[in-house]
Simulated scan of single mutants.
Amino acid sequence: MPQSCSHSRLIRTVEPKTLGCEECLAIGQMWVHLRLCRECGHVGCCDDSPGRHATAHFHATGHPIIEGYDPPEGWGWCYIDEIMIDLPNQTPQNGPIPRYY
């Protein structure tokens, strides 16, 4: 069951920066699912993807909250507390996202 955490104050309504994993698109790499940073709008791939770019973004920036973004999954995750969290809203997708799996 989703929980709250002390980092939920960092959740923002964001505009996704790319239509797919930003780093994978730049290097032509495949991904499985996408995760959206709810602090800045970075789109990265999940940990089942070869690049694990969403987690890399967390380590580089310290932005702790992601949203399961593609497909829209309706959940949030806090990397610091390692728990599922309730999100105040779900981010709409900007258009068709390329499928790479």
Rank of each mutant, 00 (worst) to 15 (best):
S6A: 15
H7I: 04
S8D: 15
S8Y: 10
L10E: 14
I11K: 11
I11R: 10
R12N: 14
R12F: 04
T13A: 12
V14D: 01
V14L: 03
V14A: 01
P16A: 02
P16E: 01
K17F: 03
K17D: 08
K17Q: 12
T18H: 15
T18L: 11
T18F: 06
T18S: 15
T18Y: 04
L19C: 09
L19D: 11
L19N: 14
C21L: 06
C21D: 15
E23C: 08
E23T: 13
C24N: 13
C24K: 12
C24E: 15
I27M: 09
G28E: 08
G28Q: 08
G28T: 06
Q29K: 07
M30W: 08
M30Q: 05
M30T: 11
W31G: 00
W31F: 06
V32A: 09
V32T: 03
H33A: 10
H33E: 12
L34Y: 05
L36A: 04
L36K: 10
L36N: 04
C37S: 13
C37M: 03
R38D: 05
E39P: 07
E39K: 15
C40I: 02
C40K: 10
G41E: 15
G41W: 12
G41M: 14
G41V: 12
G41K: 11
H42F: 14
V43K: 02
V43D: 09
V43F: 03
G44S: 14
C45M: 06
C45F: 02
C45E: 11
C46Y: 07
D47L: 14
D47W: 12
D48A: 10
S49K: 00
P50M: 04
P50R: 02
G51F: 03
G51C: 09
R52K: 06
R52M: 13
R52Y: 03
R52D: 13
R52F: 11
H53W: 14
H53G: 01
A54F: 00
A54N: 04
A54T: 00
T55V: 08
A56H: 11
H57D: 07
H57E: 05
F58I: 03
H59N: 12
H59L: 15
H59C: 10
T61L: 05
T61W: 00
G62W: 04
G62A: 11
H63P: 13
P64A: 03
P64E: 01
I65R: 11
I66L: 10
I66K: 11
G68A: 08
G68W: 15
Y69D: 00
D70F: 05
D70S: 06
P71C: 05
G74F: 00
G74S: 03
W75K: 02
W75R: 02
W75E: 08
G76I: 01
G76R: 00
G76C: 03
W77Q: 07
W77V: 01
C78M: 01
I80W: 06
I80G: 01
I80K: 14
E82G: 13
E82Y: 10
I83P: 14
I83W: 02
M84S: 13
M84W: 08
I85N: 13
I85T: 12
D86R: 13
D86F: 07
D86K: 15
L87N: 09
L87G: 06
N89W: 02
N89R: 10
Q90Y: 07
T91M: 04
P92K: 09
P92C: 12
